[in-house]
Amino acid sequence: MRLILIIAVLSFVAQLLLPWWSMALVAAGCCYWQGKHAWQSFGQAFAGAALVWAAYALLIHVQTGGIMTNRMSQLIIKSTSPAGMLLLTPLVAGLVAGLAGLAGYYIRQAMAPSQQIVGKRA
């Protein structure tokens, strides 16, 4: 849970200044540092990054009456419901950050395999 929050906060700050993919660097770095298990790393990085995109997108959606969400849903997934874009957006962020988190965790394992044992105990 702590890792989710750390990734959320850091990836939010990173994306204020850097391109969208900076979230992947944040996720990889955090899981390198704090990752305890492969699937936990993936899941928490996924959740952290997806949370930021989901919350920010939802905020914009609500504030603007969803005009753009509807149009983009129609354009990209041929759906008249805004739910499509509100789900697709965090899904993409989660997938990218999750895979980056997984990579961060495995890189750490490759460099200091002892951590794996810690991970298994946890």
Binding site: L16, W20, Y56, A57, H61, G66, I67, M68, T89
Partner: peptide, 11 residues
């Protein structure tokens, strides 16, 4: 899709 730079910013 990024809410920071993508189409969301056009809403």
């Amino acid at each position: 899709l990024s809410p920071f730079t993508g189409f969301w910013q056009n809403a």
